[in-house]
Amino acid sequence: MSQCTSNLWSAALHADDLARRDTWLHRLDPRTHVTITVAYLLAVLSLPLHDLSRLILLAAYPIWTALAGGVPFAYLARRVAIAAPWIVLVAVSWIWLDRRPLVPGHPWPTAGCLAAASLLARLALTVAAASLLLALTGLSGLTSGLLGMRVPPLCVAQLWILHRYALVLSDEAARLLRARALRSAGRRLTWRQAGTLLGQLCVRAFDRAERVHRAMEMRGFDGHSLRAFEICTRRLRATDLAYASAMILWILWARFGDGAAGLGRRLMQLAP
């Protein structure tokens, strides 16, 4: 594993470490976090594109969760940066294509700027929420939570085995690539070479699948019963329900309520 130097993997493994922390948020059932995250994503994404104000308000959720769960903002920022390029492109296209003034008589800022800012905010909030979900539950917690939500065990078994061996095979791919790079004097892979390389990797995958299958058989796996994959150890408790309802009520308030704007209006009246 140490040989895999990929940036992506180190971010993923970081999430793994974070998920093993022991805060009261981590002790909640994974299903609680899944439910809240879905509600939050729907709230953020159902906002009209130009509603920047409510997006600012909704930012309170990831900030709160990150602080309470001890999730460093650097982790969230890194994940947002990974997901950013394509959306930045769309944001730029907004600025480029929509130059109508927001306020009549003032050429700047344009409507495109507002859309772009709002898109980037949507990006940051949605990626942060998804990353927090992973950091609070971990992949194994999350997937066993999925079993409790009626996801077929065959799918969960897929996720586990895939996750378990993605890193192993990535390492093998990295080794194959390095071995080739040492002999290729910096030339890029042609598709023929790539075919061979991919073929070798695929053969290794088949061989390992054979050995893993044997190891499973030796421990009672009959190829049909997925009993050993159907593990849902946790039960929903009152605290789970309480926290989920509180968060969902807050999300509804932030999405549809008028409280924050009212507060702002009152403050502006106080100002001279």
Partner: peptide, 15 residues
């Protein structure tokens, strides 16, 4: 069910 084969080929696509 080819559970290990499916998982490993998924890992292969990944890698």
């Amino acid at each position: 069910l080819p559970v290990p084969r499916m998982g490993l080929l998924g890992a292969f696509v990944f890698a």
